[in-house]
């Protein structure tokens, strides 16, 4: 199984390290053609405005949309969540617009409000240490979006079919359980591919 991490800006290496720790192959994606080699894609944390600019500039928009249309799983952390959202709160713009969620950027405040907290995550047995950095949250979601975790009643992790998002950064901890959730989605996809 090959998992790609969009390598335009942000915490790319951290995701690759976790993927490798699970014994899988992690690939840094810097060219749109590379998307063809991978089974799942991670949009990492970073600055969403910067990553979005580079996505457009270097022709990633349509290839990523096509990737999503083929039902290959995508996991967006923090900035990645912002990039996947169909709607951004208080803004006319959206970036890739793939997931039926409305996301609020810097929703918990500035860096001084950034925090760590233990969360219950659906599908993960024991509490998960979640690191929130100038994090967004899902302000509203359509019913077919499954809520995986909340913090103070705000949605901070969610899944819609083959799309997974988190406000926090699993890649900044030594805990690979959230990534394993994503890997199981990729496994599901590969199984269905064989069946069909």
């Amino acid at each position: 199984m090959k998992i790609g991490v969009l390598g335009l800006q942000g915490a790319v290496e951290e995701h690759i390290k976790q993927i490798t720790a699970l014994g899988l192959e992690g690939i840094t994606i810097k060219q749109p053609e590379q998307l063809q080699e991978i089974d799942g894609l991670i949009l990492p944390g970073g600055e969403s405005t910067t990553i979005s600019r580079l996505i457009h500039r270097y022709g990633f928009t349509d290839p990523i949309k096509k990737f999503a249309k083929s039902k290959k799983p995508i996991f967006g952390t923090c900035a990645g969540m912002v990039l996947l959202a169909k709607e951004l709160s208080g803004s006319e713009d959206s970036h890739l617009g793939l997931m039926d969620i409305c996301v609020k950027r810097n929703a918990f405040g500035r860096q001084r409000d950034s925090f760590e907290a233990k969360l219950d995550v659906k599908g993960i047995a024991d509490p998960f240490t979640a690191v929130f950095i100038r994090a967004p949250y899902v302000e509203s979601a359509v019913t077919h979006v499954e809520i995986l975790a909340t913090y103070n009643e705000h949605i901070v992790a969610a899944r819609q079919e083959h799309l997974l998002v988190s406000s926090f950064h699993p890649e900044l901890t030594g805990d690979t359980r959230f990534l394993e959730l994503f890997v199981s989605m990729v496994t599901e996809y590969k199984k269905e591919l064989i069946i069909s």
Binding site: G46, V131, L172
Partner: peptide, 14 residues
């Protein structure tokens, strides 16, 4: 430490 260092990690490649 994770929150403070993590903020800088998010700036990487930028």
């Amino acid at each position: 430490g994770t929150v403070k260092r993590g903020m800088a990690q998010m700036q990487k490649g930028g």
